[in-house]
Design a protein around this nucleic acid. Structure first.
Lengths: 176, 176
DNA sequence: TAAGATTGAATTGTCAATCTTC
DNA sequence: GAAGATTGACAATTCAATCTTA
């Protein structure tokens, strides 16, 4: 693909980022669903909970991590609770807060699905990216993400002493 | 950003790609909506039509370009037709085919919105990416997209004579 | 019979209003 | 009053079935 001007080169990169995202989320979602009947959104929630201290997160924080609206997340957690993968707990220190917590079944589902997903990412993404390219991408996109993240104040996690700034993790496709 | 193993570096790049996509689509969508009351999805349709010969595309091809299911696109075009930005035409050479075509109003809307969007991409993406990084990203993501695009068969454009040698393979696998 | 496109039913996500607790 | 979360009404998408034309 020809990229004449410096500006054109960057636009082309943006265009490809959009295409790559769309294709991969589609493929990875299909594979996950076929192998484990697990929607990519659910997997994303499970991963974020697994990474959280106590395997639990407040609805607000989880919504940010999954990049869904607050009410959207309420409904998603409803479904996952009905499926037994997640349970609700009331926050001890602040009775307004609700925690979504991983159940044993949820942990099991994640443990079963993770290899499939990892293999998918390796096969459909990592295999086509050199180490240098990965480094360049990471450097650039870190700046992009930082610049675009001028919105929400991060709230403290519930049960803990205030020592842990919740890790904002990547999440799978949420389109507007 | 710690990237211990070569594999970790690639995973990190994937994670950042997901985050960058989510944030930017969100921001760019908001800006476009605020400035012109135009959803990003609509803008995407307009751009694709503008780039097509005759400013018209068959529903199937447009669905692929916009990355929406066939029926999803039917409804989207319904709305845009109601808004006067697009019109339907029946394909001359194949009466099953429907074309979505840009109307003057649609072209005007695109012309009005394009500067906003371009400025947004420049500000939120391009400004943070060096030329070398853009080149590396493009190279890598081109490979990724190519590898992931083992699905859709390309259909012939409508008005053209039947100069299509490619045996249009069963497009069954296009969307689940 | 298969391809192109649309429709109906059900799923998923969003916005504005609400309820509870701080 | 403000923050955390949920609910109801509504918008956008998807899947399966349908209709038309090739």
């Amino acid at each position: 693909v020809r990229t004449d001007s410096p500006d054109e080169a960057r636009l082309e990169a943006w265009r490809l980022l959009l295409m790559a995202h769309a294709r991969l989320v589609d493929v990875l979602g299909d594979e996950l669903e076929a192998a484990h009947g697990l929607p990519l959104t659910w997997y994303d929630v499970l991963v974020n909970l697994r990474a959280a201290p106590e395997h639990a997160l407040r609805m607000n924080d989880l919504a940010d991590a999954v990049l869904l609206s607050r009410s959207g997340l309420t409904r998603l957690v409803d479904r996952m609770t009905a499926a037994g993968l997640v349970e609700r707990r009331t926050c001890a220190s602040d009775r307004r807060g609700q925690l979504a917590a991983l159940t044993p079944a949820g942990r099991a589902a994640l443990r079963a699905a993770a290899p499939t997903h990892m293999r998918g990412v390796a096969e459909h993404f990592a295999a086509h990216v050199s180490e240098a390219e990965a480094a360049a991408m990471s450097a650039a996109l870190t700046r992009v993400v930082d610049a675009a993240s001028r919105r929400p104040g991060r709230a403290a996690a519930c049960g803990e002493a205030g020592t842990d700034p919740a890790p904002v993790r990547a999440s799978a496709g949420a389109r507007r």
